[in-house]
Design a protein around this nucleic acid. Sequence first.
DNA 1: GGCTTAAATAAACACCATTCATTTAAGTCT
DNA 2: AGACTTAAATGAATGGTGTTTATTTAAGCC
Lengths: 195, 195
Amino acid sequence: MGRRNDHTREQLREMVLSAAELLIVREGMAGFSMRKVARAIGYTVGQLYLLFKNQDELFTVLNERTADAIYSALLDETEALDDPVAAIRAGARVYVHFAQRHPNRWQLLFEHRLPAGSSVPRANQVKVQRLFSFIQQRLQLLMPDADDDSLRKEAAALWSGVHGVAVLAESNKLNWSGVTDFGALTDRLVDAFLK
Amino acid sequence: MGRRNDHTREQLREMVLSAAELLIVREGMAGFSMRKVARAIGYTVGQLYLLFKNQDELFTVLNERTADAIYSALLDETEALDDPVAAIRAGARVYVHFAQRHPNRWQLLFEHRLPAGSSVPRANQVKVQRLFSFIQQRLQLLMPDADDDSLRKEAAALWSGVHGVAVLAESNKLNWSGVTDFGALTDRLVDAFLK
DNA sequence: GGCTTAAATAAACACCATTCATTTAAGTCT
DNA sequence: AGACTTAAATGAATGGTGTTTATTTAAGCC
């Protein structure tokens, strides 16, 4: 077709991103392909490579957005809560609930690996660590006289545990014990910690 | 080449499985291909499909073996321990350590998804649940008068947490807080529970 | 209207999983 | 020993994948 100028470069990037996100939501990583995305927005594959370096970069941008979405949900559900214990409980539930409601986006975020050699860009690392910081801050309110190092370790243990419940909720691989109420499971884990 | 009868069907299956396992260990899921496996054992791809239904079935058998390997390690490191607390602590460390030492086999076991529609065979589900039962049994010794349901829920919360630490250890995605001593992290999580 | 330049394409490359008609040789029967 | 049966193995084809690039097309400008 040649030049059309239907959309700006930024509009096109946005079209690609939302088509890709929709495809991931619908079919997961396995059903994803660059060609399907191109077809969905009415362009050819070649064009995608003028907008993104490759599939991994596209995934990386999608993952940044997913991390943002989780963080927003975390803030929305906890901003009204002054009690740090209530905030941690609610935050953990939000985290697990997101994994359960958006398994394919969750999987792309936590299971997609970049080729050996390249590492996750700092921008993305920061957005994931922000989730962790949330807990760490609330935990600090609970243990005001704990030193920074042991606080970080405590937060890491707690949030790893929550992440484990989220993995359990999202995957059907580990249906240990046939537990289905992941909200209650999350509370149980958090409570074990906050004693 | 046609018929050769160099090996029995069972020998061939075994050759495929060990070549495939080696390839997974070396290159992970991303670097895996049926063609590479065939090349490694000196046969053509077509032959693989006379031995296994498809790639997913091959992966499923590999995963059964990985689950066995984890379970064996679990038993080896805990059979001498009478104290259930010590057994749970040691078991959790073995689990996390395995994820850290064999990240590619771990990923295949917990991140490989079968195509929509088909589900993980019962044989595999049982082998994964065995890992969970290990904890549940030890936990029962600690809480002799707990009813079966709450015991299962408690075990699920604990082992999900341990699984989360294992995911953290195996992936470099969630390097929250730069924790590197996963053994200590595991102990922290287990101890929070066993109080 | 012609020229420049950016946008978009189409076709190619090198892989991939999977299937199946065909070939080959081992084992059996006469 | 030679013909026949049958199981083992191949090789080529099908339809997919990510990625690259020469080429075409049209928009904007002089």
